[in-house]
Structures are given as structure tokens and as C-alpha cells.
Design a protein around this nucleic acid. Structure first.
Lengths: 231, 231
DNA sequence: CAGAAATTTGACCAGTTGGAAAAAACGTTA
DNA sequence: TAACGTTTTTTCCAACTGGTCAAATTTCTG
């Protein structure tokens, strides 16, 4: 009955999707459908990223989206659908910076701008970062297959790129996987642990400028640490 | 009625604690009380670190602790008590490595061993790390005062130590706060994002050796990045 | 061992939760 | 405007939630 078909990263259940409608015309999405779905996803991002999957309630999401619970359930027949949709779309965006790491480019600006872009994502999409972190903390029960599949593959490839640069002597010889981890960790920290960062920096230094400072610091850390130095 | 008095980092509610017992003898803790409380806290750490405060249920904790819900509630009359106890004791342990950073020592081994100890904590107490991370993701509603108080104070002090070293030219001149953040981020990553790390490293490299590799990598990153280099 | 204190259990409760069903309201288009 | 598909609201429910309470059981102490 629900007119929304969601592409999901399902792995186990293949039963709920049956129940063929009498009029099998899916009939393309309405304008309202698209709009409301966006509103819901936006609200859900807020709630899920704070409370995690179990901690979030449909009521909270519905209220944040400015609609009644049954109305919300009309668009996403179950809580998990919302979460999955958020997850997949987030993962896609989230990995774009790494995908753009180009073996053809020069290592220094390539790595530098990768770090910068990742930091910008923490600044501009902190909730997505937290959503992801929340899933990780829970042991990634819903996206483990993605991690072991697409993500591993992408990282393997980029680790290869880094290793190539190392062999050419363009960057210091080190573990490419842990290098990637450290970039993830340091940049995402500013989204996931934002409260702590701001609390420690205090009112004066905890403003928007903290991202500038972080960028400067990280660039320094990685450049001096990762690249051969001759001074 | 409940014989357990918990030291908590309360900030607002000062009402529930009243209700003076008729026999005001607190009567010291029983052996059973100590044992069971430990069992409960252990179980609660498991559940809270995975599900967060809201996501965790007393039933889950009780089952993990091998006792009935009312029995558990006999020792900790409310869910929040358990959480607070975990939080305070965890925070204390968690900051020990930073407290030990000694201004008198030599910067290189001091910072190096700080990183090592933090990484060891991620390896040996990953659930504590995740518990903390979970609280951060939620905006630290229950420990914000600690962050802005004790934690900030400690970090301010240690940032001062780092700055001293910088002025002596013993370490590279950089932002001491973000340096501390980056050590936190990179080391805690191996606890909080453990699933991801293992998924990406794969079966062959994802074993226990990953902490060795991480230690080697991080040492390299920070030493070469933070300290003046003359080769 | 008796009695008291400590511990455990079972039954229970009110509020919340995810979700179903159906009817009502709305919008569109022939 | 009538008919039909879409959207929204109302009502409802069973399972789960945090927590209470009194009774039953176990453990300790004199």
C-alpha cells in the first residue's frame, strides 16, 4: 500500500516487500511526497544522530518534522526505513572526499586538500558524522556489510595510491591504512566531540574560528609528519 | 530505603535525596552489596556503551548481570544512578594518562608515552571509551559541567606544559589544545570505531596486531610532526 | 538456633513505544 | 462538480518501559 519504495542495504529480510498491490501502477512520486520525505529525513537526522537508533522515537522525529506520527508513518512505514535511507545517503556523501583522492595529482596538495575537505564536512555536516559514529559505537549492525565491502574496497584502493607515493619517495614510508584512519579520526573528532572541544576551548576560542585553528594545526601535523623534510 | 549512597556529579536536582531513614545508621556496605554492584556496573557498561543512555533498558542490564530487574533496582534505585556511577568512575580513569603528563620530564618520551598509554586504554577499556563517546554524541547532557570545569582546567594546565616546551624550542610551535585533541582522536578511534577498523583491515591485518601497528604509526606521525627535525 | 537484617522474587502499574486500521479531509482532473 | 487518488487525523492496540510494593527467601549475628 505505501507508495514509497526505498532502496535499502538490506541483507536478511526478504518478506515484508511482497503483498502486491491490486493496481500495480507505482505512479511516480508526488511533489508532496518528495517534500515531506525530505522534511522527515531532516528531522530524523537530528534525532537519530543524537539518540542513536534505539534511543530515537518516532514521536520525536514526527514532532521535529511538524507532523503527526501516523502521518509520518504514511511516508516511511517503519522506523528502520528512515534510518536506512539516512545511512545510505550519508555514507555516499561521506566517502566522496576519499574517492576524490587522486593518484595522478601531487601528493602534498592531494592529501592536504583531503584533510581540509574532511574537516569541512565535520563543520558543515556534523549530524551526519554523529549518525555514522553512533552506528559505529553500536558495532555497525546495519552497515557492517558495507564496511567490509564497498568501504574496504575503496580504502584498499586508496591505500594503494598512498603506497605508490611512498615507493616514489614522495611521502614518508608508513602504514597507509592507519594514515587514513588518523585523518578520519582527527577530522571527525570536531563533529563527534564538538561539545567537548567547545567546552575545553572555552568561550573565547570555542567559536567558529576553531575550525580554522584545527585546519592549520592538522595541516602542520600531517605535513611535517608525513612528508619527507629536508630542513 | 535503599542502603546505597552514590556520590554523583549532580548539578540540578536536590530533592530525591531527602527522606531521612528512621534508623539513620548507614551501616557500611555488605560484601554482597559490593559484589553485586560490581556485577551490575560491569553489565551496565556493556549495554550503555553500545546503546547509549536512552537506548539501554534496565531489563537488558539486569539480564546481562544475571539477575531480575527488581533485584537490580534494589541496588541502584534508578537507571540514572548506574549511568552516573559509570560516568564518574570512567572519567577519572580516563584522564589519568593526561594527568601524568609531566612538565619536568623530557618532552619526547613524555608525549610518546602519553600516546602509548592512551592507545593502551583504547585497547584494554574500549567500552569505557564508547560510553564516553556516546555521551559526547548526545551533547554531554550529564557531564557538561565536568567538561567545562575539571576537564577544561586539566587541559588548560597541560596545554601550558606543552607551551612551555614550545617556548624552550623542545617541540614544534603549534596549537597545544588541538595537539591534545588530535591525540585523543587518533587513539580513541581504535576503540570507538573498532568495527570499522577491523572491517577495513580485513581478517589478516585486523587481529590484535592492529594496536601494535597503530602505535608504530602514531608515534611516527606525532614525533615527526610535532618535534623539530634536523635531518 | 532465633531473630533481625539483607536480599530476592512475583505481581503489578502507569506511561511510552512502534505500528495498524479506518475514516475523514483534501486535491486534482475529467 | 463528481469521482478518485492522495494525504491527514483519530482511535486504538499490544509490547515494552522504568519503577513500586509486599511477600518470600536467604544470610548474618548474637
Amino acid at each position: 500500500m505505501p507508495p514509497i519504495k526505498v532502496k535499502m542495504l538490506d541483507s536478511e529480510n526478504g518478506k515484508g516487500a511482497a503483498k502486491a498491490a491490486r493496481k500495480p501502477r507505482p505512479r511516480a512520486q508526488t511533489r508532496i511526497q518528495r517534500e515531506k520525505q525530505d522534511v522527515i529525513l531532516e528531522a530524523a537526522l537530528d534525532v537519530f544522530s543524537r539518540e542513536g537508533f534505539r534511543g530515537a522515537t518516532i514521536d520525536q522525529i514526527a514532532e521535529a518534522a511538524g507532523m503527526s506520527k501516523p502521518n509520518l508513518l504514511y511516508y516511511f512505514p517503519r522506523k528502520e526505513e528512515i534510518y536506512k535511507r539516512l545511512m545510505t545517503s550519508m555514507l555516499d556523501v561521506w566517502l566522496t572526499p576519499l574517492r576524490e583522492l587522486d593518484s595522478v595529482g601531487d601528493p602534498v596538495p592531494e592529501i592536504r586538500s583531503y584533510i581540509r575537505r574532511k574537516l569541512e564536512m565535520s563543520r558543515d555536516f556534523p549530524r551526519q558524522s554523529r549518525l555514522f559514529a553512533n552506528e559505529m559505537l553500536q558495532g555497525a549492525p546495519r552497515i557492517l556489510d558495507v564496511l567490509e565491502g564497498d568501504l574496504k574496497q575503496l580504502v584498499d584502493e586508496k591505500a594503494g595510491v598512498l603506497e605508490g607515493w611512498m615507493q616514489q619517495g614522495k611521502i614518508v614510508r608508513t602504514d597507509p591504512y592507519h594514515l587514513i584512519f588518523s585523518i578520519w579520526a582527527t577530522t571527525q573528532h570536531y563533529a563527534d566531540f564538538d561539545v567537548q572541544v567547545r567546552a575545553v576551548l572555552g568561550k573565547d576560542r570555542g567559536g567558529e574560528g576553531r575550525f580554522e585553528d584545527a585546519a592549520r594545526f592538522l595541516e602542520n601535523l600531517f605535513m611535517r609528519g608525513v612528508f619527507p623534510h629536508k630542513d
